[in-house]
Nucleic acid binder design. Sequence first.
DNA 1: TGCCAGGCCCTCTTTAGGGCCTT
Length: 202
Amino acid sequence: MKQRLAVIDFETTGITPGPGCRATEIGIVLLEGGQIVDRYQSLMNAGVRVPAMIEQLTGISNAMLRSAPPVAQVMREAADFVGSTPLVAHNASFDSKFWDYELAQLGRSRPQAFACTLLLSRRLLPQAPDHKLGTLTRWAGLPATGRAHRALADAEMAANLLLHLGSTLRQRHGIAPAHELLCKLQKVPAAKVAQFLSATPA
DNA sequence: TGCCAGGCCCTCTTTAGGGCCTT
């Protein structure tokens, strides 16, 4: 995987972005040549309260956010850090909603596509016990990256999973795992994955 | 007051329902 890719993960106050539900932390890992070449991580203060259940899940407290930099500053830095690099996330439908919502608050929009390691692992690792990020990391013997449900640790886990999926494509199917191909593969109906892979030139 | 996502994927399906996955 020689291409440069940005793997991102958000911690948030809930499931659906909106005035009362905002990002609280972002972690970004840049991959190039199969290696992590750069990282970005920051808490961010969007002026919303973290529900107790979320604080328990992530360890991110209201006190931590009070002293965090403003959301606009962090998202501006994050968007500049990523630029037009193709994006990847685990369950990208979730992270892309927050990425797009928070960029829209700055009057910015996303130029690039998201690849999704959840959709890809359902297609390439159907034998896994489930497709949660933590389960896949342990099941595939990938390195521990720190406290789960913190943005940079989860982004690194997703990056390691992406590299594992790339190796699977290359070794098992002789296919180079370019971002454009990953975006196509994740949309192929699960029942037609084998047919798609065998028809894809190496 | 009470409500609270949504896209994907499977099946006891397609005029539907429920589990998965993210916080």
